[in-house]
């Protein structure tokens, strides 16, 4: 039990009588509520900060982003500089992560690759949330014929051979990172939409939704304030699990020609190029794969923490 100003109640008795001065009521403080009003997000952040693993995850991600930005300056190599005589060298003091098949420093290439792959991860997350969760939420909430139409659209997009779309995009728009984002944007929200829609279908019949309707919450508020926050669990899981898939999809897209042009390479590209020489030069696969795994681990810790932090039922 703590008291205002941190004064220990136990010391009151030993104080002289004139220790206190009568100040009377302070009008401007009469309406003050002790606990400041916190928004949903402030609250979530407060709780996230208390979660050790989640914060570790967050720091690792920040650290990786920092490496992506500053790392290349530290190694003394460029991502394109070839020394063909030094091709396929195992990790050493000169090249901590070894060299690739053209004698380029693998570590530097991984630092550069982080720029692409992390941005892919982030973009995929944003698409998942902004498009997938919202689309699915609306479909589930409105239901009926709208739901049928919206979900059949999802099925159609699922069904269209992505490779055809990608080839067409490539022919029409050429290569570049932006086009990868577009390609991801076309498809990387379908799974999320289905998951959220399924959850919302179930949730919207629950009592708290009825209660919210009763007090006059409109559809928009219902969706954003009640339904989606209550679906955070599956949303976060779907989100964190779809990031590595986006990272590897990027590798495939780059292979077909949609991504950034060689010699720039993402983690996914580095890993898939290394895999051909898995037996002779395992480090060329191991390091990019490890970078992806570590990032995913960090995203997962953060994701789990976020899930707990964003869970409205845990808001006390």
């Amino acid at each position: 039990m703590s008291i205002v100003n941190g004064v220990n109640p136990g010391v009151f008795g030993s104080l002289p009588d004139n220790a206190f001065e009568h100040v009377g009521p302070i009008p401007e403080e009469q309406n003050l509520i002790v606990r400041p009003p916190t928004t949903y997000w402030q609250d979530a952040w407060r709780r996230l900060k208390k979660n050790f693993l989640a914060m570790c995850g967050l720091y690792v991600i920040i650290f990786f982003i920092a490496l992506a930005i500053f790392g290349p300056m530290l190694t003394g190599y460029t991502y394109f500089g070839q020394v063909l005589q030094d091709a396929n060298k195992a990790p050493s003091l000169a090249h901590w992560f070894g060299t690739d098949h053209l004698g380029r420093d693998e570590l530097t290439r991984i630092f550069y690759g982080a720029r692409i792959s992390l941005s892919i991860g982030i973009v995929a997350s944003v698409i998942n949330l902004a498009v997938g969760a919202l689309y699915g939420g609306i479909s589930g909430l409105v239901g009926g014929r709208t739901d049928n139409v919206m979900m059949r659209i999802v099925d159609i997009i699922y069904g269209i051979p992505l490779q055809l779309v990608v080839i067409l995009l490539m022919v029409v728009m050429g290569s570049g990172l932006l086009n990868i984002y577009v390609a991801l944007g076309l498809v990387y929200w379908l799974g999320m939409a289905r998951i959220v829609r399924g959850q919302v279908l179930a949730l919207k019949e629950q009592e708290f939704v009825l209660a919210a309707r009763m007090v006059g919450a409109d559809q928009r508020r219902l969706l954003l304030r009640h339904l989606i926050p209550n679906t955070m669990g599956p949303i976060i899981v779907t989100l964190t699990l779809s990031i590595p898939q986006a990272i590897f999809t990027e590798a495939w897209l780059s292979f077909i020609g949609l991504g950034v042009a060689a010699p720039m390479a993402s983690w996914g590209v580095l890993a898939s190029e290394g895999v051909g020489g898995l037996r002779s030069y395992p480090w060329q696969t191991f390091f990019p794969a490890a970078a992806i795994s570590l990032t995913m681990l960090a995203f997962n810790f953060l994701g789990d923490g976020l899930r707990d932090a964003l869970d409205p039922r845990l808001r006390r």
Partner: peptide, 14 residues
């Protein structure tokens, strides 16, 4: 200059 020698990859039948 490096940026003037570009690589462009296309799928086989493109």
């Amino acid at each position: 200059p490096k940026e003037k020698v570009k690589l462009h990859v296309e799928e086989w039948k493109v």
